[in-house]
Design a protein around this nucleic acid. Sequence first.
DNA 1: TTTT
DNA 2: TTTT
Lengths: 164, 164, 164, 164
Amino acid sequence: MAGSVNKVILVGNLGKDPEIRRTQDGRPIANLSVATSESWRDKATGERKEKTEWHRVVIFNEGLCKVAEQYLKKGAKVYIEGQLQTRKWTDQSGVEKYSTEVVLQGFNSNLTMLDGRSGGGGGNFGSDDSGSDFGSSGPSSAAPRRAVAAAGARNSDMDDDIPF
Amino acid sequence: MAGSVNKVILVGNLGKDPEIRRTQDGRPIANLSVATSESWRDKATGERKEKTEWHRVVIFNEGLCKVAEQYLKKGAKVYIEGQLQTRKWTDQSGVEKYSTEVVLQGFNSNLTMLDGRSGGGGGNFGSDDSGSDFGSSGPSSAAPRRAVAAAGARNSDMDDDIPF
Amino acid sequence: MAGSVNKVILVGNLGKDPEIRRTQDGRPIANLSVATSESWRDKATGERKEKTEWHRVVIFNEGLCKVAEQYLKKGAKVYIEGQLQTRKWTDQSGVEKYSTEVVLQGFNSNLTMLDGRSGGGGGNFGSDDSGSDFGSSGPSSAAPRRAVAAAGARNSDMDDDIPF
Amino acid sequence: MAGSVNKVILVGNLGKDPEIRRTQDGRPIANLSVATSESWRDKATGERKEKTEWHRVVIFNEGLCKVAEQYLKKGAKVYIEGQLQTRKWTDQSGVEKYSTEVVLQGFNSNLTMLDGRSGGGGGNFGSDDSGSDFGSSGPSSAAPRRAVAAAGARNSDMDDDIPF
DNA sequence: TTTT
DNA sequence: TTTT
């Protein structure tokens, strides 16, 4: 079908450090566990309640994987924009299971840090995925500010000098 | 946790008619099956591919249930705004399963018809849920335009005559 | 027309403290000035560039006005969800001007604090607007957590004990 | 600043045909005029009211300009995702004016047709902007389905064969 | 006018 | 299971 939209927007915190693995042909995939919560006062009892929802986030976008690996840690607050995707798999005992994930892949994905942990500051990272030196970045001591610049470079087609 | 956002935005088509059921205390719950699709041309083979994602949508909001029951049909195109929620349940053979759904409940939910089937025209239905005559609406022959008006009435606090 | 959606989502920082005023009949209106920024490296020159966009945000929703007044300060980071609205006005020299604003009013508006300034923590504030004791809250020394609870109470119809 | 989000989502109808012009260096720019409307019943008088908001949409993205030129017409229903941007300009009598626009440029922009006018069908067009044969497309008699395919090709990095 |  |  055409003419459809599938978009998820989350603002939440990482429940643990990102997990990065690689496909057989070397592409990185990052998995995030993101919590969102709501709190409200129960109408009947008056007591305060809170409910936390955990989201499984999967990043296929190379540039965003790099960001996740270098800058995100357990507890980090992030803005995430991706798509809903349900995957079918079979567990070790042969039972079919379904897993619904928020997938960041291709255009219209976004990952933005919203807190300035570890001396850095939030960074906005698009999804052009043209940067591909993931894994070759040497000593990952790069300062956040350079990272922002590098990420910005990937999106350099966004904004440059349009005369009109 | 506070300071979080959990939002899903879908534009897609119903795979079948809405299913409406009721809680023990009489509140309606509507289930929609919504398809979103993407198509692209495979870089390697050049062939055209298409992938459809099915979304399970659950509406707790009374007014929106009413809209779903009265106006939505298999094939209808809708705009949906809700939250991601994963539910755990146990199947008949005792296996634990998880189901992730797009839930429309409370504020910040939306359901809007995007096609003008049956002579009507898309309608925008908010989520105030103050209307509660669901089920008592008599002969459901109401014309879509009246429905829009009725739905609008539920949101009458939106817009009226703010002097400034 | 029916079947339309008008939604703005911002994550940004307040350029100054919120400004609160009142309509003749006593309803509060809050104005926020919110900055969003993008940075990128210029493809040609290689230099780092940054562009800031300022958004005029107007809150008609009583509960959200209260939140703005009590908890938001210059520099605060916020998540905002509202609608685009363009207003025509005439300046003192009789020239017609247009002002486009992000309006928070009625359902489908949201204001969430994303930083934990003043010992608090971000709070998620919906838009039911049923709370109306704005202005009578006495010594505004209320701790953020109580505020979250109070705000949550306004949304208590969101979530309570749906059996299914 | 980093860590910010500036996003507009519209579903509305074109008030007139798209206007396409070109920069001095040949890049296309499309302008759309998009209407969104709300209707509600006035609480006091009980009468039905409707308010239409007009949005000025500017597309810098080459691929999306092409889509606009080839497939969008007055009355078309579209899903639009872009950014808010306010531009300052001086009119012929020297008065400074501001114009706020919804800009589609770079990643995280989207334009999707939601109705199947002229025998076609809605199309989903991303924002990779790597296609650049705009203007050279010869007899613009291309059928919508081919256009969808072409647009899909621009996003062919989205989805292909990720083994994991 | 913010933030990094 | 939809839609194109």
